[in-house]
Write a protein that binds this DNA or RNA. Structure first.
Lengths: 106, 106
DNA sequence: TTGACAAGTGACCAAACAGTCACATATCAT
DNA sequence: ATGATATGTGACTGTTTGGTCACTTGTCAA
């Protein structure tokens, strides 16, 4: 589970999270299309972020002619969520379930 | 939701995640006790990490005499999980919704 | 085949960060 | 009081990271 660190690090940047959000809305976008979502940064900055997302396996890419399409890969996020975050997020779920049950039985 | 960024950044470091894990096992530990969990680093490094976790609101502290106790606060993790990670970690839900919509419009 | 267009590379800089250390403060036990 | 213990602070350093730029490579269309 050493790639979990790469995932956490990749998610630590707001620009990268924004790029994932953009791909969540519309998958398969090109570099240029994604650059339009981050107008305050040059193409090179965006490309660096995309490279990090790809090396963390959070996105996959495919060449299409002279363009490059980017696709979201939610699997690493799911794994990190299951194996690490869920450990902390679960008690809350239990609390909600308990509250719901309490309301139901009340 | 600007503190979400602090949470993501705080979780981006393996040492800090290890400290949270240590507190998950045993809550309320002192600085020294936590230092024992990270023997490859000096106390000062550990204290810096603890300070970051605290400023991200992932832990709370309480002075107890000349010691300081550290307590896990899972709420920020839960919020991040619910509002951001869950979006990606539940593609199955989305798939179901999409399927339902498709059936509806068909 | 020429030119416009999309993406890639390596060098480069500034800012942020991880980590350490000398030193300081506060607290407990004797 | 005195010394040992627990934590705190500010300065300092090496490394990583975010971002830009000049220049290159590959691809499409006229």
């Amino acid at each position: 589970m050493d790639d979990a660190d790469a995932v956490f690090k990749a998610l630590a940047d707001a620009t990268r999270r924004g790029l994932l959000d953009a791909l969540f809305v519309a998958d398969g976008q090109t570099v240029q299309a994604l650059c339009r979502k981050v107008p305050e940064m040059t193409r090179f900055g965006v490309m660096k972020h995309l490279a990090q997302l790809e090396s963390a396996n959070l996105i996959t890419t495919r060449r299409a002619g002279r363009t490059k399409q980017h696709f979201l890969n939610p699997v690493p996020i799911q794994q990190v969520s299951d194996r690490w975050i869920g450990k902390y997020a679960r008690p809350f779920t239990h609390a909600l379930v308990d509250l719901r049950d309490e309301l139901h039985t009340a």
